[in-house]
Simulated assay, not measured.
Amino acid sequence: MSEALHEKLERALRDAFDASTEIYKQRGFQRRIGFGSRPALVSVDLANAWTRPGNPFYCGDTMDNELIPGMQKLLKAFRDNGHVVVHVTTAYQNTDRNDPNTDMGMWHHKIPVEAVNLKDEDLWAIDSRIAPIEGEYVMLKKRASSFSGTPLAGYLRSASVDTILVTGVTATACVRTTICDGLAEGFRTIAVKECIGDRVPGAVAWNLYDIDAKFADVETVETCVNYLERVSRKPSSMAAE
């Protein structure tokens, strides 16, 4: 997309947001859910098939310029303060579209999910720049939402989590459905602004605006890091003494 078209799209989105905000405010939308006391990170599909060029799911240059650096800051705050981290990825055991027993279900009729084959571990491995460390849960999903048909909700509840900070790709699909289902499961939902991407121009801005009105609070990396440090689960050095 050219710079001129990008600026035109940005102006159109700002105008749409301004007009929609008036409607939402008048009708009681855009309320705040707030942070709780036991957070977890749910990082969605930040695996090589989405973060590195050459795959149909690749989400573009914002990966290197904004999303990965934002994730590195966020992960540091989670790890330094002893909070739960979940890395979610997607892959399929049977990518034969003609086999009725494929674990792709019906989704391959809409998008090329067969491009992420479980046999090619490098495709669905979490990007090495934000690689999981020991003790962090790496969960495989088959559908858009990280909660659909997975043990995620139970895993989070067993850790007494009440707040999920959601990051990843894409804003239009897996991130959005994860946020919606997370709220439905009873978790406070926070969408981390700089750590959510998509492959379609304007998709992130529109979805985050709409999500903020209905399903989650959209917060910056800086705000989230400050929160994670305030609710640290690690004892202070003074307390340890």
Rank of each mutant, 00 (worst) to 15 (best):
V161G: 00
Q72V: 07
A4E: 15
V169A: 03
V231T: 03
H87T: 01
V116W: 04
Y92W: 13
K76C: 03
N101F: 11
V44H: 00
V88I: 15
E194P: 02
L9N: 11
L41D: 00
E185R: 06
N101P: 04
S145Y: 01
R97C: 11
M106F: 13
C59W: 03
S148C: 13
P151V: 02
R97K: 14
G60E: 07
P151L: 06
D15F: 06
A184C: 10
E241L: 14
E121F: 09
F17H: 11
G82P: 07
N81S: 08
G34A: 05
A131H: 14
E114W: 10
A239L: 12
R157D: 04
V231H: 03
G34S: 12
A240M: 15
K110T: 10
S43G: 09
D80G: 12
E7V: 06
E66T: 13
G28V: 09
R27F: 13
Q93L: 11
L9Q: 15
K73L: 07
V116I: 15
L46H: 05
M139K: 12
F29G: 02
F78C: 03
A216W: 01
L74D: 04
W107C: 01
V42C: 04
M1H: 08
D212C: 03
E222S: 14
A191V: 01
N226H: 15
A171G: 08
W50L: 06
D61I: 06
P39L: 04
N117K: 13
D122I: 04
S43F: 03
S236R: 10
M104R: 00
E136D: 09
V192K: 04
G182D: 00
L156W: 03
T21K: 08
D198Q: 07
E185P: 02
R27C: 08
T189I: 01
S236L: 15
A19T: 12
T51M: 08
T163S: 07
A191T: 05
G70R: 00
W124C: 00
N81L: 09
W50V: 06
